[in-house]
């Protein structure tokens, strides 16, 4: 790809760089226990929690596994599980 003048790039292109590869722990949501309070989505530094029809999911393409969602979850509905190859 040709370089751009002055290294100007399009905004939002970071989504081409999935940071999920950085993860050594995986958050897993217990959908039974989840009260859909939105905390996990709110606290994610990597915008990697999404909600669909009131059900919360992790975007594993980008989740780095920091564990904030699990720690902050008021009903302990998220477990951090070691990634295995």
């Amino acid at each position: 790809m040709k370089i751009t003048m002055g290294a100007v790039v399009m905004g939002g292109t970071s989504v081409l760089y999935p940071t999920g590869a950085w993860r050594d722990q995986r958050p897993v949501i217990d959908h039974e226990a989840c009260k859909s309070c939105d905390t996990c989505r709110d606290v994610c530094p990597d915008s990697s929690v999404f909600v669909q029809e009131d059900v919360y999911y992790i975007d594993y393409d980008f989740c780095k596994g920091c564990g904030l969602c699990a720690y902050e979850c008021p009903v302990d509905a998220i477990a951090m599980i070691l990634e295995e190859k």
């Binding site: 939002g12 081409l16 530094p45």
Partner: peptide
């Protein structure tokens, strides 16, 4: 990827940035 995940990826500060864990 479904529509909602796409919405998250469309946030004004999008994922894929290289901040440390839990920044």
């Amino acid at each position: 990827m479904n529509a909602s995940a796409q919405e998250n990826r469309m946030e004004l500060f999008a994922p894929g940035h290289r901040a440390c864990h839990g920044c």
